[in-house]
Simulated scan of single mutants.
Amino acid sequence: MKEIIENSLETSMSYNEYITLVDYLVLNNKTTGAESTEDLVNYTALNQKRMSRWDKRLTLTESQKEQLKAFDKPMIWLAITESWCGDAAHVMPVINKVAEQSENINLRVVLRDEHPELMDLFLTNGARAVPKLIMLDADTKKVINTFGPRPSAATQMVSDYKAAHGQITPEFKEDLQLWYNKDKGKTAASDLLKLLPVSVSL
C-alpha cells in the first residue's frame, strides 16, 4: 500500500493544477477518465461551472478557521477524482477550502482512472466511487483516515433512496444536486474537521 500511495503522490497535482486541467478540457471539449462520451464531456463542462462557483462562494465559520489554524499535525490529503463526477464538483472545492486554512495540510489530487491500484485500495461498498480523500501522515505516509465520496447527510440520502427504490434514478440525482446547493458545503466541511486526528477545543 505504501508504495502505491508514494507512487501516486509523485504523479499528483495541486488543486490549482487540477482546476487548470479542467479548464483546458472544457475549452477542447474533452473529459478526464478512460471513457470520453458526449455526456461525460458535458458533465465536465457543467462541473467546471459548479467548481468555479463554489471556489468563489464557499466560506468556513470563524470557529472552523481557528481550529484549522491551530491544527499542528503535518498531513497530506490525497484526493482521487474525475472531472465528470457530479459529487466531486461539489465536494472538491470544500476539501480545498478546508486545506487552505491550515499550513499543515498539503492537498494533492490524482485522477481515478490513471491510478486504478490506488483507487482499488479505497473502494466504497466495492465501487470505485469518487471523490475519495485519503488523509496521510506527512512523514510516514500512513493512512490516518478517509472521506468520501459524499458528505454524511448525502450518503444517508443515497442509502435511504436505494433501500426504498432499489437504485438511483435521474430524478433523485437532481434532488441530490439541489441538496448540495442548499447545504453550501457545510456538511462536508464539518465532516472533514471531525476526521482530523487531533481535535482542538475552542
Results as ranks from 00 to 15, higher is better:
residue 5 I to K: 00
residue 7 N to A: 15
residue 8 S to K: 03
residue 10 E to H: 07
residue 14 S to P: 06
residue 17 E to R: 05
residue 20 T to A: 11
residue 20 T to E: 08
residue 24 Y to C: 13
residue 26 V to G: 02
residue 28 N to L: 02
residue 36 S to C: 14
residue 37 T to S: 15
residue 51 M to L: 05
residue 57 R to G: 11
residue 58 L to C: 06
residue 60 L to W: 00
residue 64 Q to N: 06
residue 65 K to Y: 08
residue 66 E to W: 13
residue 67 Q to N: 08
residue 72 D to F: 05
residue 73 K to L: 10
residue 74 P to Y: 01
residue 75 M to C: 05
residue 76 I to L: 07
residue 78 L to C: 09
residue 80 I to H: 04
residue 83 S to E: 10
residue 84 W to T: 00
residue 86 G to V: 04
residue 92 M to T: 06
residue 99 A to F: 04
residue 102 S to P: 01
residue 104 N to C: 15
residue 105 I to E: 03
residue 109 V to I: 10
residue 109 V to M: 07
residue 110 V to N: 03
residue 112 R to S: 09
residue 116 P to L: 03
residue 118 L to G: 01
residue 118 L to A: 10
residue 118 L to N: 00
residue 119 M to G: 08
residue 119 M to L: 12
residue 120 D to E: 10
residue 120 D to A: 03
residue 120 D to I: 12
residue 122 F to I: 08
residue 122 F to K: 02
residue 130 V to P: 01
residue 131 P to V: 13
residue 132 K to G: 03
residue 133 L to S: 03
residue 133 L to M: 07
residue 134 I to D: 03
residue 142 K to V: 10
residue 146 T to D: 04
residue 147 F to R: 06
residue 147 F to Y: 09
residue 149 P to V: 06
residue 150 R to C: 13
residue 150 R to S: 07
residue 151 P to F: 12
residue 152 S to G: 12
residue 153 A to N: 12
residue 154 A to L: 07
residue 155 T to Y: 09
residue 155 T to P: 12
residue 156 Q to Y: 06
residue 157 M to I: 03
residue 162 K to V: 11
residue 165 H to S: 06
residue 166 G to W: 00
residue 170 P to W: 14
residue 171 E to T: 15
residue 172 F to L: 08
residue 174 E to P: 14
residue 181 N to Q: 08
residue 181 N to E: 11
residue 183 D to F: 05
residue 184 K to A: 11
residue 187 T to R: 07
residue 189 A to I: 04
residue 194 K to V: 07
residue 197 P to V: 12
residue 202 L to K: 09
